[in-house]
Amino acid sequence: MKLFVSSHGHLASGLKSSMEILYGRCDNITVFDAYVDERSVQEQLKKFFETVNEGEQVLLISDLYGSSVNQAMSLFLDRPDTTLIAGANLALMIGLAGRECISREELNELIAQSREMLCIVDLEKETISQEEDFF
C-alpha cells in the first residue's frame, strides 16, 4: 500500500516527520506540501502514480474536505485501487502504519477511531494515569 499525503503548507511533511519519529523510515508515504512553491498537486500526483505498481493499493490523504488540495486529489480517483481520505490527522496515520493493505470496512473503522481522538480534554473528568503509555 502506498500513501500520498498533501496539505496546505507543511502539515503533510509534519505528519510524515512525526510518523518517522514513532516508526522509523516510512518509505510507503509520499508527501506534498502545497502552496509553498510553484509545484502543483496535480504534477506531484502524476509523478507519484508513475511509482505505483499494478494492483497496488493507493490511499490519497488530504488535509481538508472540499479544499483545493482535496479537489485536485479527487481528479485521480479514476485510478485503480485508489481511495481519497479527507481530514488527515496523526491518529489516522498511526492506524495505517505498517499495513500492506486495508479493506473499506477497516478504513471506515480507522476513520471513526481517528475522529474520537479529536476531543476536548477535561482534566477533571479524565482518569488517565501519568504512568499509562499513551499509545
Rank of each mutant, 00 (worst) to 15 (best):
I85S: 01
L118F: 12
M19K: 05
V58A: 05
E116I: 11
D33V: 12
N53L: 02
S13R: 11
E54A: 07
N89V: 06
L11S: 12
L45G: 03
L75R: 09
M1D: 10
F76G: 05
E126C: 11
A97M: 13
I111S: 08
L107V: 00
L75K: 12
F76D: 06
N28A: 10
C101H: 13
G66C: 04
I61E: 04
F48I: 01
G14W: 01
F49P: 03
C101R: 15
V69H: 02
A72F: 06
L60C: 00
V5R: 07
F134Q: 03
N108L: 01
C26A: 15
E109A: 11
E116Q: 14
D63R: 13
V121T: 13
E43D: 14
L92T: 06
T127Y: 12
E126L: 10
H10N: 14
F76L: 04
S68E: 06
L45R: 02
C119D: 11
L123C: 12
M93N: 00
C119K: 15
D133W: 00
L96W: 05
F134E: 05
V36G: 04
R104L: 09
F48L: 06
D63A: 14
G66H: 06
S18M: 05
F48M: 06
D63L: 12
M73Q: 11
L96Q: 08
T82H: 04
T82E: 01
L110V: 08
R104F: 05
V31T: 15
E38K: 14
L92E: 01
K125D: 03
T83K: 00
S17P: 04
F48V: 05
L75M: 13
S129I: 07
L22A: 03
I102C: 07
T83A: 07
S62D: 08
I102E: 09
F76H: 08
E50R: 05
G95S: 02
E126T: 07
L64I: 15
Q71M: 14
V69I: 15
Q113M: 09
V121A: 13
S7H: 14
L60A: 04
N70A: 15
D27T: 11
K47N: 10
S74G: 11
C101D: 14
T30C: 06
